[in-house]
Amino acid sequence: MKKKGVRLVLTMLVAVLVLWFLQRLLMPKYMSGIPEGAMIAEYYDSEKIHDVIFLGDCEVYEAFSPCYLGERYGISSYVRGSAQQLIWQSYYLLEDTLRYETPEAVVFNIMSLMHGEPQNEAYNRMTLDGMRWSASKWKAVQASMLEEESVWEYVFPLLRYHTRWQELGAEDVKYLFSRDKVTWEGYLLRVETKPVTVIPEPIELPDYTFSGYAMEYLEKLRVLCEKKGIELIFVKAPSLYPHWYEEWEQQVDAYAAEHGIAYYNFLELAEEAGIDYRTDTYDGGLHMNLSGAEKLSDYLGKKLVEVHGIPVRTGEETYQNVWEPKVKLYHEEIEKKKSGVPEYE
């Protein structure tokens, strides 16, 4: 009987190990091609000494550079952003962040208010797969799932990625048990330049009111920050499209005014921040490149210190030990990337 029990336990152990190995092998690594999928998980490797946490979609992780903020203003920050990060995902990512640290301020890019319902499975996976398991992740999954998705595929990603055996490559083996850094404290570094040439005409919407679901999460975000003594700041990155409608702006303005939240709309502040759409975007106006991101970081960094009282950590030993090597590597990476970038014609 005892022998049978031991045999059964060993069998189960082997089965679990095999499944765990297969899961690791088949899950996309996002080390090349689409690094956005690896961004959320990277946070857990960072030292949790951040005074500012940025939240939002691609507009935010390509618009603010924590390394620049650290070097220039002594601000310790991190961007918890991912591609098409929906507002409820931002909320649960903040909940998740609060398990590790409590920042002084949260900077939230309000673009995701435009979405009132789950959008795309691939983006959901890129945001949620990297999150560590907690009640927040469970709730984030529940809030984000499309009808055809199943929560069990998040619990056991092997069920989702089981068909990837057909597309396994060297990258899957190389990064089986490790991963490279793809961001700089959540900032996705892009040095290419593609000036704005054409801005698509905005499409007319049937209704410009933000959905109740999105507003519910905005309220939750505000209440959570208030409860934790965190200052909530709204930003709107200067992306020229998708179009940011005046009706949307009015709603954000009203909400921010009602709750005394600072709001920086960089579409309006672009000139003041020094944004030049000929040199500061890498995709014709959708996202900022390094030049644009550093200009925005410069502007916001100043405000964070002067208006919002974010502590300047320059000179603090812990801070120096953590940030100095990062900034050094950041500059090396910029040089490396710049040397490999062809001129835009």
Binding site: L19, L26, L159, R160, H162, T163
Partner: peptide, 17 residues
Amino acid sequence: WLLLFTAVLLLGAYGQG
């Protein structure tokens, strides 16, 4: 049996797609 289980898991036409 483990092989059959793995075959169902990996080769089964289920889930996304």
